[in-house]
Each structure stands twice: as C-alpha cells, then as structure tokens.
Amino acid sequence: MKPIYYLYTKALSDFSSRMQFIGLTSALLMSTYPELYMMLFFLGRQIGGMMSSYLAGIVADRFSKRLTMIISEIASGIAVLSLIFIEHPLFIVIVAFLLGITYTFFDVSFRASIPTIFGEERLTEINSLLVRLGATMSIVGFPAGGLISTFFSYKYLLVFDGLMYIGSAIVLLNIHWSEPTKSLQPVEQKQTLRNVLQSGMYMFLLTVGFVYPFAASAYQYALPLIASIEEYGDLYNGMMWSTVAVGSFLCSLIIKKQDVNERRYIVSLLLFGTFVSLTFIYDLTLATFLVLFLVGAAEALVQVCHYTLLQRSDEHVRGRLFGLNTLATRCGFLAGFGAIPLLEKMTSLSHGIWLMQSMLVICCLVHMWRKYHSTPKSETF
C-alpha cells in the first residue's frame, strides 16, 4: 500500500475526531456541573499533551516512529470506545487527558516521519495536502457531529471514532518505509540537539511555536463572542469558522508547489497578525468574512512553512524538535486562552486581541533585527 493513501485514512480519522469532540462536549454540557467539567475537559487535553510532548520526541528519535504511531492509534481507539460503557463526566475528562497523551505521541512521530516517507523534495506538497484535508474535515466534521449528537446519540460518534483509530492502525501495519538506524548514543544525541538549538532559525521556530498559538487563541476565543450578539449567533459562528477553513483550503492549493523559505515564513506570520487585527476593527459585517478568509489563507501558509522548515532538520533530532514544538504550542494556547479574558476585562476585546497580535509581530521583528546584525550584509534577510 502506498504511503500517500494513509494521509486520506488519517483525514477520515481526523473527521471522526472532530465529530467525537462535538459529542463529548455536548455530553458534558448535559452533566450536573457543565462549566466545571468543560473546564477540566479542555485542561485535561492540554495538560496530557504538555506532559508527554518532549518524551514523545525522545521516543521518536530512539525507537521506530511507525511502531509508535501504531501503538498510539490503538491506545486512542481503546480509550474512546471505553466511553461507551462508562458515561460519568469525570471519566470523559480522564479519557481527554489520555487522548492528549496518545495524540501527542502519534503526531510527533508522524510529523517527524514525513521527510523519510515522502522525501524532502515533497515536503511543501505533502504539508499543503495535510492542511487542505484538515480544512475539509473541519468544514464537514463539526456540523456533522452536531447533527448526529442532536438527533441520535453521541455514542454513535464514539463508536465511529474508535473504529477509525483502529482502522488507521491497521492501514499503518500495511505500509512500510525505511527508517534510519538509531546510530547515535543518547549523549551524542543531546549534543546534536544542543548544536541545532544554537541555530537562530530553529530557536525562532520554537519561539513562534509558542507566540503564534498565543496570538491565534485570541481570535478563536473572540469569534463566538462577536457572533453571540447577533440574532442568529450560532449560524454566524459556524459561518465564520467555515470561512476560515475555506481560506485555508484554497491557499493550500496555491502554495503546494511554492518554495518554502524563512522570508516567506516571516511574511506569513506578519500577514496573519495583520488580518486577525483587522477582523476586530468593526462590528460583524460582510467585510469581516472577507478578512476571515484571508486569516485562513495566512494560517495555511504559516502551517506549511512552519512544519516544512522543522522537517528539514537533522533526522537524529527531528523527533525532539517536534516534541519541543508541541510543548511550546500547547503552552501558547494555554497562556493565550488565559490571557485574553483578562485583557478583555482590563481594556476591551479588540484591544486585547491587538495586544496579543503585536507579540507575534514583535517576535518577527526581533528575529529580523538579530539576523541583520549577525550576518554579513550580502547575506542579510
């Protein structure tokens, strides 16, 4: 079986996970203490991923990435299917914590394996395809999950999601690729990672791994709020998220054959911060949807550039770089979702969003300034 087929299997698994997310949150909202359990649910997912991120990177560098992916998918499937038999909201929180761990192990090994599976010359093409598939699954998955959960039962979503995890593991069992031998000793690997992190580019990537989700969390928090003041708030909320996904989808079609470099990456980050800031200048209008379309396009460009640049790192440390990136990303979202409500109370929602986008812009400007002053003028950014 060709490895490219697995990307579509993974997309179906992502589709089922989006529906499962809607189902579980709906079940928690019907519990005795919905606010408490919802908070624990989101914290459980994030903390599970944060605790396991760097360990997942070490495992990816020292052991078989393919085997790690298979075990993670099977464990995720078992965890989801167990919710069919135990319905207590606290158990849902525990499973969310476990899924945060298993997903992190899978994602770190999967992202670190892409250069080996498909070749470094196809990184932009494959990462663009992943963004495109992810956008498609978001457009369809969330509404489908809501419909099934509303008119049937969220347990149907759990069965489908659990079977998709196990099906994904079965497909992986039938796909083989040549993994490099783990020739470096742990001490040598630590030294190699230290040398890699001394590169300004990789430190910048990991810094953005925190600052970008910190900035992105602001508008993710704000979109439901600005939609809620309208007469058909739920409809507007869904339309706004679909608009972002459509922007990501179309942009991924354009950039799949483009060259990825540091300059394009920085431009995409600056565009993202600019478009998000423009979204909240005025009240909800038709122009808001146009800007959100551009936000989605910028998000796609950021993701493709970010993952492609990380995947060009040395094979022996790639897993730990992705582990550190996952840790930075989860910390960024956690800090962002904690900061934006406080900033909203201290100033306003719009000002809070602009302040958080300015952090991303400052991060890019500082990197450009340091690069300009640390290289000969003929080689300057």
Rank of each mutant, 00 (worst) to 15 (best):
Met38Thr: 14
Arg66Ser: 11
Gln46Cys: 11
Gln46Asp: 06
Leu83Pro: 00
Ala79Lys: 07
Leu90Met: 15
Leu90Gly: 12
His88Trp: 02
Phe97Trp: 02
Leu29Asp: 12
Asp61Thr: 11
Gln20Ser: 15
Gly77Pro: 10
Ser16Arg: 12
Ile74Leu: 11
Ile71Lys: 08
His88Gln: 13
Leu98Pro: 04
Val80Pro: 05
Leu90Val: 10
Ile92Cys: 00
Ile70Arg: 15
Phe42Ser: 08
Ile70Thr: 09
Val108Pro: 03
Phe41Gln: 00
Ile70Phe: 15
Gly49Pro: 00
Ile101Gln: 04
Lys65Arg: 10
Phe15Arg: 05
Ile84Val: 14
Asp14Lys: 03
Leu81Ala: 06
Leu99Tyr: 01
Ser109Asp: 14
Ile78Asp: 03
Ser64Gly: 12
Thr32Glu: 15
Arg111Phe: 00
Leu99Met: 15
Pro89Gly: 09
Ile94Lys: 01
Arg18Val: 13
Ile71Leu: 14
Met51Phe: 05
Ile71His: 08
Leu98Cys: 13
Gly48Tyr: 09
Ser109Tyr: 12
Ser16Cys: 11
Gly49Glu: 10
Ile101Glu: 13
Ile78Ala: 13
Ile70Asp: 06
Phe106Ile: 04
Ser64Phe: 11
Ile86Pro: 04
Met30Tyr: 12
Leu36Asn: 04
Ile92Gly: 05
Tyr54Phe: 00
Leu29Met: 07
Gln20Lys: 13
Ser64Trp: 00
Val108Gly: 02
Ala27Leu: 03
Ile114Pro: 07
Ala75Trp: 04
Leu40His: 06
Pro34Arg: 03
Asp14Cys: 00
Leu12Asp: 02
Gly44Cys: 05
Arg111Lys: 13
Thr25Lys: 02
Leu55Phe: 13
Ile58Arg: 15
Leu12Ile: 01
Met69Pro: 12
Arg62Met: 15
Ile70Gln: 10
Ile78Pro: 14
Ile22Thr: 15
Phe41Thr: 03
Leu36Phe: 15
Tyr103Met: 12
Tyr37Pro: 07
His88Leu: 06
Ile78Phe: 06
Ala11Trp: 01
Ser17Phe: 00
Met50Tyr: 09
Thr32Pro: 01
Arg66Ile: 08
Pro89Asp: 03
Ile101Pro: 06
Pro89Phe: 03
Ser17Glu: 09
Phe110Val: 07
Gly100Cys: 09
Lys65Asp: 09
Thr68Gly: 12
Leu12Gln: 01
Gln46Ser: 15
Arg66Gln: 08
Lys10Gly: 02
Ser53Glu: 08
Val80Phe: 14
Met51Val: 14
